[in-house]
Amino acid sequence: MAHELRGQKVAILAADGVERVELEQPRGALHGAGANTEVLSIHTGEIQARQADLNPAGTFPVDRLVSDASPDDYDALLLPGGTMNPDQLRVDKDAIGFIKDFVNAGKPVATICHGPWTLAEADVVRGRRLTSWPSIRTDLRNAGAEVVDEEVVTYGQFTSSRSPADLPAFCAAIVEQFAQAGSPSSGV
């Protein structure tokens, strides 16, 4: 494998309404490269997934409450989308605090579709170049981000993508980003 993530632990922060493919496919790519993942959420049990925001698409078990997690426990963070998911996360003080601490630690963060809403709420996008689902681009601009319409954007510690249609490029980019961040020369 070109990019080895063996020994890395990735937090996936999600809530009810997460877009199933935006959690499942990146997690599969990370596992395929050797990473371990944990789903963090704002409640215990399971989170409800959606397909195209509207249709129920099963559940994902929650591994840990975000309120009980520390960025020190993880090498990277994945923020999947779905409209309801980030809308719930962005009003949860523990989720926003976790994201702020993660970004301030300089660790890699990957987000897709509506996922960057939580980054805007955490006030960590100012001066950063990102892409997202079209309907939240104004929110990102208002939070100080440089927003572009590209399949995948890697800028510093952030990798972002627009939609499920971009998942193949997004999955490849996050494996590469996380592998580089986890290399001994990177300091992570």
Rank of each mutant, 00 (worst) to 15 (best):
D87F: 06
L79Q: 01
P80T: 00
H31V: 13
A145P: 05
F60W: 07
T111M: 14
M84L: 15
E46I: 09
D92P: 01
T59N: 08
C171I: 09
Q48V: 12
V39A: 09
A181S: 12
A172D: 14
Q51S: 13
I42N: 02
L65D: 06
S41L: 07
D63A: 10
N104Q: 12
Q180E: 14
Q157S: 07
A95D: 05
W117H: 13
G58F: 11
G17C: 04
G17T: 03
N85W: 03
G115C: 07
V152E: 01
I99H: 10
D139V: 11
Q51H: 14
V188Q: 14
L5G: 11
A110R: 04
D72P: 05
N55S: 14
A2W: 05
N104G: 14
D166R: 00
V91I: 13
R90C: 07
A143G: 06
R50M: 14
F102I: 10
S41T: 01
A69V: 06
S135K: 13
I12V: 15
V153K: 08
E150Q: 15
I42Q: 06
F178V: 03
Q51K: 15
E151F: 00
V103Y: 08
L30Y: 10
A76D: 07
T159W: 02
T111N: 05
C113P: 01
A179H: 11
P164T: 08
D53S: 12
F170T: 01
F178E: 03
D101F: 05
K107R: 10
H43R: 11
D53V: 04
T59K: 10
R129H: 09
T131M: 03
V91G: 12
A169I: 05
L89F: 03
F170C: 04
A165H: 12
Q25R: 15
P108S: 10
G97L: 07
L119N: 04
V188K: 15
V153T: 10
E22K: 01
D149F: 00
T159H: 01
S67K: 09
A52K: 13
V175D: 03
D123F: 08
G7K: 02
V62K: 06
G34L: 12
S70E: 08
Y155Q: 12
I47R: 08
I136G: 01
D101I: 10
A15F: 00
T44W: 08
G82Q: 04
N85E: 00
P71Q: 07
R162A: 03
E38G: 09
V153S: 06
A76N: 02
S185I: 14
I96H: 02
G187H: 10
V18F: 13
L89S: 07
P134V: 10
I12S: 04
L23R: 11
I47W: 10
I96M: 07
G34P: 11
G156K: 08
A120T: 06
W133H: 12
G32Y: 06
Q157G: 00
H3V: 09
D68P: 02
S135A: 14
V124M: 00
A173E: 05
A14G: 07
K9R: 15
E151N: 09
G82T: 03
V21K: 11
G82M: 06
A35C: 05
P86I: 04
E22H: 00
I136E: 02
R129S: 09
V109W: 06
F102D: 11
S185M: 12
G58H: 07
L65H: 09
A95P: 03
S186M: 05
S132H: 06
P71F: 04
